[in-house]
Design a protein around this nucleic acid. Structure first.
Length: 436
RNA sequence: CGGGACGUAGCACAGCCUGGUAGUGCGCCUGCUUCGGGAGCAGGAGGCCGGAGGUUCGAAUCCUCUCGUCCCGACCA
């Protein structure tokens, strides 16, 4: 994209409503604009980030065999009455009435809908297990939206649902999702720790929250430093090998980790003092096993091997995709602005033409821009150098390729790595090669 | 849902107490100078002061209602 032709409205000053770093920076970097309390429009650069995150989430879901689909945002109240949640969900559910007086709702989640879709088509144990997911906008009428996109009312969520024959199968599905989550957060550049969460009436230990460490996080966290030593990139767990999956689960949940609500002083005292870590964190994912909570009341049954009827065991698995944008910025920013991890950056690089109109600069900048096949951002604005540098740092592009009149003559650009601040003068070819 | 604030130009704010017809900085437009870390000078555009009633000769300012937004707390991806 050419910045001169783009709607990426950066701000020098911080809008008054933004209290935390990510909210401030998302507004200042021109990623989003608020349209109502807790509801945001995603401007071009912000939308690219959201898509990049979605793609990674989606790929890791596919890696464990989950199938992507898309369910509607608007749902009928009928199914929710079957599950008993139409009343139970309360005022957080946005209820709508259509012109015929039918009760509709803007979906806060999709257990009922998918259970219905599955019961229509799945009749035999041979068809299980199944795991399906979609990435779709949700609406929860939060009492108090805040922190920008981190606690919005409308938000983008990946929600997956597993259907297994029995508890043992459901546990396997659960662990696969956990593995997919660890890989997903890893690829996003985040250090996310699974922490035991409340399971509600179902009991057991099959609910985990995934907490990203960030100093501005909402919950306090306590964890054993042993977790930090796990090299997820090298540990190549195979989701489809039972022993591997078991090994993974023990690795991921084997050491102490809890949010302040579930913190257990007795267990904490057993962690060697040198390994105790305290901090703050943001919940970016939550996974549940809930047995037959929906399959039972909604009448999802399959024929078993012996001809009898079985009620499938289910689980659901959520990732707050739009919240992740905020969480990533909370984890990666400095005084000058955002520092995007390469995997989610809206543009892999910005090419800063310091002197638009100068033949040599224009030629070199265009050459660099062409090398990215339109994926990079070209700052071709007629602005002063300082403004361009400041905006580039603010927007957080992983790489800055600076084309100036000095270097344009000798075929040299300045290549800056946003994360380290390191600058080198190299040929354009070298710069492109380093960016890869 | 309890508690507390605030709505004045694209952004940040002053003016309100003590009514007299709207201002500052940044941003935006034009010109000249400048030009590798948010330039200087000169000129200019942009606001029915959130909305509706009321009081008054006169309301951004006082009163009532209303809509919107934010903050603290309890709840959630």
């Amino acid at each position: 994209m050419r910045l001169s032709r783009s709607l990426i409205p950066t701000l020098k000053e911080t809008p008054a409503e933004a209290q935390i770093a990510s909210h401030r920076l998302m507004l200042r970097a021109g990623l989003v604009r608020q349209t109502s309390s807790g509801i945001y429009a995603w401007l071009p650069a912000g939308w690219k980030v959201l898509q990049n995150i979605s793609r990674i989430v989606s790929e890791e879901q596919a890696n464990i065999g989950a199938q992507e689909m898309l369910m509607p945002t608007v749902q009928s109240s009928e199914l929710w009455k079957q599950s008993g949640r139409y009343d139970a969900y309360g005022p957080e559910m946005l209820r709508i009435t259509d012109r015929h007086g039918r009760e509709l709702l803007y979906g806060p989640t999709n257990e009922e809908m998918l259970t219905d879709l599955v019961r229509q088509s799945i009749k035999s144990y041979r068809d299980l297990p199944q795991c399906l997911f979609h990435i779709q906008w949700k609406f929860r009428d939060e009492v108090r939206p805040r922190f920008g996109v981190m606690r919005g009312r409308e938000f983008l969520m990946k929600d997956a649902y597993s259907f297994d024959l029995d508890y043992e199968g459901a546990v396997v599905s659960y662990r696969k999702q956990m593995l997919a989550y660890m890989r997903t957060f890893q690829r996003l550049g985040l250090k996310a720790i699974p922490m035991v969460a409340d399971t509600g009436p179902i009991g057991g230990n099959l609910s985990h929250e995934f907490i990203v460490l960030a100093p501005t996080g909402e919950s306090g966290v306590f964890y054993d430093a042993a977790f930090e030593d796990i090299d997820w990139e090298k540990s190549n767990f195979n989701a489809h090998d039972p022993a591997d999956l078991e090994n993974f689960f023990q690795t991921a949940t084997g050491s102490y980790a809890a949010t302040d609500e579930k913190h257990d002083e007795a267990a904490w005292a057993e962690v060697p003092e040198a390994r105790r870590r305290e901090g703050r964190g943001i919940e970016v994912g939550h996974i549940f096993y809930f047995g037959t909570k929906y399959s039972e009341p909604m009448g999802l049954k399959v024929a078993g091997q012996d001809g009898g009827q079985l009620v499938p065991h289910m689980g659901s698995y959520g990732v707050g995709v739009s919240r992740l944008v905020g969480a990533i910025i909370e984890a990666f920013h400095d005084d000058a602005g955002i520092i995007w991890p390469d995997s989610v950056a809206p543009f892999p690089a910005v090419i800063i033409n310091l002197k638009p109109g100068d033949a040599a600069c224009d030629a070199m900048a265009e050459q660099a821009y062409a090398a990215f096949k339109g994926q990079a951002l070209l700052d071709d604005r007629d602005e002063r150098a300082g403004a361009k540098f400041a905006d580039a740092d603010l927007m957080g592009h992983p790489w800055q390729i600076v084309v100036g009149p000095r270097g344009a003559k000798t075929g040299v650009v300045e290549l800056k790595r946003r994360s380290t601040g390191e600058k080198v003068e190299v040929s354009l070819e070298d710069a492109l090669a380093r960016i890869g």
